[in-house]
């Protein structure tokens, strides 16, 4: 219980002073979010693990050489590193989508994002697996905002600043991402809990 009260910033400081346990805690705390953010881009667990390792190696090097200055914003910082590495991977593999519309709705259904791996062929067609596939197929700008909001815990204002757009553009991209996902869920007849109207 107490452990969760130690902030990321405090853990980074401890780590900078040689406390490896502090780093272990940071890894444990954020591994799932960072890994999921990568996986949703590359859609291959082996590549995602390689990139997760590269992400943390970059973080380790930056922190241990005293070049880290995010002041408590460890998760957004490391998810940004992860995101950039995943996008670089696609660029190197020449599988990065070239047609990205602001609206995204036309691209969504036709985007040939990457070859399906053996793994993705075997993916079970249950709700979450299907939803993961849908997120993976979102236009890059929409996916970027969605990943930053959900896995980096960044506010829309922070996302806007990080991506060099206005907050309305960031919100608009999120809106199209969610609308696209809703459309696809309806198309595949995937139901979610609709009894969620607030008390």
């Amino acid at each position: 219980m107490e452990k969760s009260l130690v902030s990321d910033g405090a853990l980074v400081s401890l780590y900078q002073n040689g406390n490896e346990k502090a780093f272990e805690l940071l890894v444990k705390r954020h591994k799932s979010k960072v890994y999921t953010a990568i996986y949703l881009i590359v859609k291959d667990s082996y590549i995602a693990e390689d990139l997760l390792q590269d992400t943390f190696i970059k973080a380790i090097t930056t922190i241990k050489t005293n070049r880290y200055n995010e002041e408590g914003k460890f998760l957004p910082w490391i998810v940004r590193i992860a995101h950039n590495l995943a996008i670089d991977y696609f660029r190197k593999e020449k599988r990065y989508p070239t047609v990205i519309l602001e609206d995204g709705s036309n691209v969504f259904n036709t985007l040939n994002f990457s070859e399906d791996s053996v793994e993705s062929v075997q993916i079970k067609m249950e709700t979450h697996e299907k939803l993961k596939e849908m997120i993976q197929k979102l236009p890059e700008q929409q996916k970027e905002v969605l990943l930053m909001r959900h896995y980096a815990d960044m506010s829309f204002q922070e996302i806007a600043e990080a991506t060099g757009v206005s907050i309305n553009t960031a919100l608009g991209r999120m809106r199209y991402a969610l609308i696209n996902l809703r459309k696809q869920m309806t198309k595949y007849n995937i139901n979610y809990d609709q009894n969620i109207y607030p008390k």
Partner: peptide
């Protein structure tokens, strides 16, 4: 509803 579904998606390395 969609936000809640996305929030449930998590993979472990």
């Amino acid at each position: 509803g969609i936000k809640q579904e996305i929030s449930k998606i998590m993979r472990e390395p």
